[in-house]
């Protein structure tokens, strides 16, 4: 039988030192033996490295930031669809998920599929809701409290022991040993990310992560645990290794069974010396280290496409332990003519 060919649009081509997942996702897709792909890159900025990787990305279009509104994004996608006849879109960045989840039906009307969590799944896993989330799904989470005023800092000693973590609504996390330090971090974070600021119990242990794919009916299609080996000054993994950890897998399957999670996800966990696992964050999308899972035997991007198109999905229960990823940087060579064409036409 002839292999089907899909036109797949992928965002997150910013393969920088704080990488988006686009390029590793594409590598996974290209390795599929069961379908062929034409990759349409969707880029926000004109220097996203993926745009210039012509062996991976067949054609790139610039799209407006989600901040310019759902309508503007959809109008642009409609145009791209008229040129490329898209079958599927994989949004890979946190900031665009809200827009794409909200636009599911409109995309379907254009005959473009997505495979994303529902708005409810997306909203309930926000950092500020972690306590409720842990309680609802029976997962240990560090005690968290949203605070909105410096006055609340004095009262923290009733519920927390120092040190504790001071986190921003979207990004940033600092360890504080004294109320004075909390105060400093509170000011810094609230100025940058607004209120509330989240105070979180500091759990001592090792940070471990799981990449997973849920089919939307409660089944876990892929799940690979990994430990970061080296973390850059931006807090991003520069190297990681797959590990054998049945407890993590079970926790993951359990969560996906209960939430009926649909799409890719990453669980960030802390494993304590007592072998307890605390969930600290859920990223509602495929993480940038996805290619490690592919190399270890679970091609998550491929499985995601298969799920979306009702193809047979392999039963991924195995993966190779001890597979490693090591990020590196590489200077691509571009030309001002490419840059010019992208700048003027928004296409390349």
């Amino acid at each position: 039988m002839e292999k089907p060919k899909f036109n797949i649009a992928v965002t997150g081509l910013n393969n920088t030192d704080n990488p988006g997942p686009g390029i590793p996702v594409i590598r996974g897709l290209k390795e599929s033996k069961d379908f062929d792909v034409r990759i349409i890159g969707l880029a926000y900025e004109n220097l996203e490295p993926g745009i210039y990787m012509r062996d991976l990305v067949d054609k790139t279009y610039q799209i407006p930031y989600p901040s310019s509104g759902k309508e503007a994004v959809l109008e642009r996608i409609e145009y791209i669809n008229s040129k490329e006849n898209l079958d599927f879109i994989i949004p890979n960045l946190d900031a665009e998920l809200y827009t794409f989840i909200q636009s599911k039906e409109k995309l379907e009307k254009m005959d473009i599929r997505t495979f994303l969590p529902t708005m409810q799944q997306f909203e309930e896993r926000h950092k500020a809701n972690l306590n409720e989330y842990g309680e609802k799904y029976g997962i240990k989470v560090p005690l968290s409290k949203s605070i909105t005023s410096r006055r609340d800092i004095d009262e923290l000693k009733e519920d927390f022991e120092y040190p504790l973590l001071v986190k921003g609504k979207f990004y940033d996390a600092y360890l504080a040993y004294t109320p004075e330090q909390v105060n400093t971090h509170f000011n810094k974070i609230s100025a940058k990310w607004g209120l509330p600021v989240i105070i979180q119990e500091f759990i001592r242990g090792t940070e471990v992560n799981v990449i997973a794919l849920g089919d939307g009916h409660g089944n876990t299609v892929c799940a690979v645990p990994m430990r970061k080996q080296y973390i850059t000054d931006k807090g991003k993994a520069w190297g990681g290794i797959t590990i054998k950890d049945e407890k993590m897998l079970e926790l993951t399957r359990n969560l996906i069974r209960q939430t009926k999670w649909r799409g890719g996800m990453e669980l960030e966990l802390i494993k304590t010396n007592q072998n307890e696992y605390f969930l600290i964050e859920i990223n509602p999308r495929i993480p940038a280290w996805v290619y490690l899972a592919v190399a270890a035997g679970q091609n998550l991007p491929e499985a995601l496409i298969k799920l979306a198109f009702g193809m047979d999905v392999p039963n991924y229960s195995e993966y190779e332990v001890g597979k490693m990823f090591i990020r590196y940087s590489f200077d691509l060579i571009g030309d001002i003519a490419q840059f010019g064409s992208l700048s003027v036409t928004g296409e390349m």
Binding site: E45, N46, L47, P64, R76, Y79
Partner: peptide, 16 residues
């Protein structure tokens, strides 16, 4: 002016 790397909406035909 085209700002390298920065969000650049020109040429993207976003309608006003």
């Amino acid at each position: 002016k085209v700002n390298a790397g920065m969000p650049d909406k020109f040429g993207m035909k976003t309608k006003t």
